[in-house]
């Protein structure tokens, strides 16, 4: 069977169709929020939220087990959404109050989230092995319902993230100016936090909690290598996100590799290659000397 036959078989498989659809949705929407987070220098916020989402997964599991639902993890993703939003809003409040620096608040969430998840999953009668699917992603087991859920979350992220781009750009570029301009800074901050939480929840299925932030951040890092504007960075990152997600997932159809890890390694590899090649790709600007032609403030050379 040739390569194209295998490719056709892959595209004909309903399981792979669902997985590819989610990969595209996540690949396009995660870098949108990632661009805002990188601009605010909160690149690791996604990680903090992801860890809290793990506690949410375990809480959903616990609730599902208590209610006697089958399978036990039917409430895991809703639990992750609730916990991620709560965690993101909490980080935002801590940051706004300025009582704890942003990175310490993130560290508290990281460790509290993971430890809480492991404890709760044990209390629900599971083992930490049950969490593995959420830690490393489980895109190969997605259901039709998962696809609809991802599509809905992605629509919200893209609709608000792109529709309110001028206001969110102003906020993330210079928060004090945004406040002085009269923008509803607090509401927008909460909005960014909630959207980041939704992004984490939707990406969790693809790459898992531990790598969720990579999908948001690495495409932006790659786009930054070449883009000069905010708009171009976001647009390029969305394309790169979709391409690495689909490519990485397709590779795992041919080789038995972890989809999440493959996608992230692919993205990081792309970054490395472009970073090395960049000096060769970028041409010097026409016009030569980039300095403006202005008079000196001091008199030089006249005494000679």
């Amino acid at each position: 069977m040739g390569f194209f036959d295998t490719l056709a078989a892959m595209l004909a498989s309903p399981l792979m169709q669902r997985a590819l659809m989610i990969a595209v949705l996540v690949g396009v929407s995660a870098p949108v929020m990632g661009t805002y987070l990188v601009q605010r220098r909160l690149a690791l916020l996604g990680d903090g939220i992801g860890h809290v989402a793990l506690t949410g997964v375990a809480m959903g599991w616990l609730a599902g087990a208590a209610a006697g639902l089958t399978p036990h993890d039917v409430l895991a993703v809703p639990g992750a959404v609730v916990a991620a939003i709560a965690g993101a809003v909490l980080i935002e409040i801590v940051r706004e109050q300025g009582k704890t620096s942003g990175d310490v608040a993130l560290a508290l969430l990281f460790y509290g989230g993971i430890a809480g998840g492991v404890l709760l999953i044990g209390a629900a009668g599971g083992t930490s092995a049950n969490l593995t699917g959420y830690l490393f992603g489980s895109i190969s087991t997605v259901t039709v319902l998962d696809v609809w859920l991802s599509a809905g979350l992605a629509a919200v992220i893209l609709g608000i993230g792109l529709g309110l781009r001028p206001a969110l750009f102003a906020l993330c570029h210079d928060e004090e100016f945004a406040r002085a301009a009269g923008l509803p800074v607090r509401a927008l901050n909460i909005l960014v936090a909630v959207l980041a939480a939704l992004t984490v929840s939707v990406s969790m299925r693809v790459v898992g909690v531990l790598l969720v932030s990579a999908l948001m951040i690495v495409p932006v890092a790659i786009a930054q290598l070449t883009a000069r504007s905010f708009g171009a960075t976001m647009g390029t990152a969305m394309v790169i996100g979709a391409v690495v997600c689909v490519t990485g997932l397709s590779v795992t159809y041919f080789h038995p590799l972890s989809p999440g890890a493959t996608i992230v390694v692919l993205a990081v590899g792309l970054y490395a290659v472009l970073a090395v090649l960049r000096p060769l790709l970028s041409r010097p600007k026409p016009g030569g000397d980039p300095h403006p032609d202005t008079e000196d403030d001091v008199r030089v050379g006249e005494a000679a």
Binding site: Q39, R40, R41, L164, A167, H173, F177, G182, R228
Partner: peptide, 25 residues
Amino acid sequence: STAGVPATALEVVASGLLANRRLRP
């Protein structure tokens, strides 16, 4: 500049058009 993503002068200046009743420029 504390922002981590490149932004053009045009993008930065356009953000000055926003206000409490105007979320798009």
